[in-house]
Computed example of a mutant assay.
Amino acid sequence: MTQNKSGILALVGACTVWGLSPLYYKLLAHIPPIEVLAHRTLWSFVFFAVVLMVQGRLGQLRTALGSVRSVLVIAFASLMISINWFFFIVSIQIGKATEASLGYYIFPLVAVLIGVVVFREKLGRLQILAVVLALSAVVVLTLGLGVAPWIALILSFSFGLYGLVKKWLSVGPVVSVTAEVLLIAPISLSVLLLAWYQGHATFGANWRDTGLLLFSGPLTATPLILFSAATKRVSMATVGLVQYLNPTLQFLCAVLIFGEPFGQWHAIAFALIWTALAIYTAGTWRQDRAVRRAAMASSGVATTRM
């Protein structure tokens, strides 16, 4: 199997796990979301630490937290991913999985906006049109439903800011995420100890819930490891395209399995978002092709000169 094919399979696997994860969190809907988040954080740390230990890279964790700057950056990343995880869990429990999927559809366009604001990146006409359509979708939902899609906005912006600070880290994704959950682990442990002290801790109460909570570790870690492996083997344009599988599966779970309402305002907003993503993807593919052509041309010139 070629590197590209194995990368695509890993990418599809990661996005499929993420996309179907609402089915898992729906099984935990009777447990307070803060408690679910605490277990997800702790068992993710255990799983990641074991992976790094097996790989002989546990020492890189100390390197990642070796300076005040790194600790502050990782702490901010930890805050953003915790907010993202918490509101995703909440969205499933309160019947807002459709809005959660909208958030992950919007995320690539939020990332574009962050790039403009923080890195002064210039947008092409297609990218500007895609962003305008995404903003229009948010306005349509706000006016049509009488309330802004707060969960979608929180999920997309928290994940966008998370991606932003990750650019400032020199360590790999598995090491950085391990450091992130390590920093938040004391808070998570405090939440679980408080639940136990108050007599309503879920862990250990029955085999079903205990097993499901333990499973949150590999469920969180496995797709991230697959995604990390995939990004090293396929182009970023391919990564961007296949990633839409995640919110698409979330959307299908919400509407077809959970039976969440999907009215005319949702239809208009999602149509605008899907159109925006199609335009954005076309622009990204065009840019990627132009870069590759330029690289091939410069390589040809260099070869001719030799």
Rank of each mutant, 00 (worst) to 15 (best):
I106F: 12
S170L: 15
H200A: 08
I151P: 07
Y162C: 09
L129H: 03
T210M: 04
V138E: 12
P173Q: 14
L113Q: 12
L192E: 03
L129T: 15
L192C: 04
L155T: 05
A201Y: 03
A111Y: 04
K96A: 11
V165Q: 07
G217I: 02
W207G: 00
L164N: 07
T178A: 15
P108K: 03
L143G: 08
V138P: 01
I106S: 00
K166E: 12
A130H: 07
V132T: 07
S170A: 15
S170V: 15
S101Y: 09
F119Y: 15
L135C: 14
L212T: 03
I92G: 04
L113M: 15
E121R: 11
T202G: 05
I154K: 01
G217C: 06
L213A: 11
A179P: 00
P173D: 09
W168D: 13
L133G: 06
G204V: 05
L113F: 10
E180L: 07
K167T: 14
L141D: 02
I151V: 14
Y104E: 01
I94Q: 09
V110G: 04
L113S: 14
L135S: 05
I106R: 01
W150D: 07
V117L: 14
V90L: 10
V191P: 04
L102K: 01
E99N: 09
T222G: 01
L193A: 14
R208D: 00
G146Q: 14
V116I: 11
Q127W: 06
S170N: 14
Q127V: 08
Q198E: 15
V118N: 10
F157L: 15
L153T: 00
T222N: 00
L213N: 07
P218C: 08
T220K: 00
G163Y: 09
H200L: 06
F88V: 02
R125M: 13
P173A: 15
S170E: 15
L161D: 02
T98I: 14
V117C: 11
S101D: 04
L194R: 05
L126V: 11
W168K: 15
A111K: 04
S158F: 12
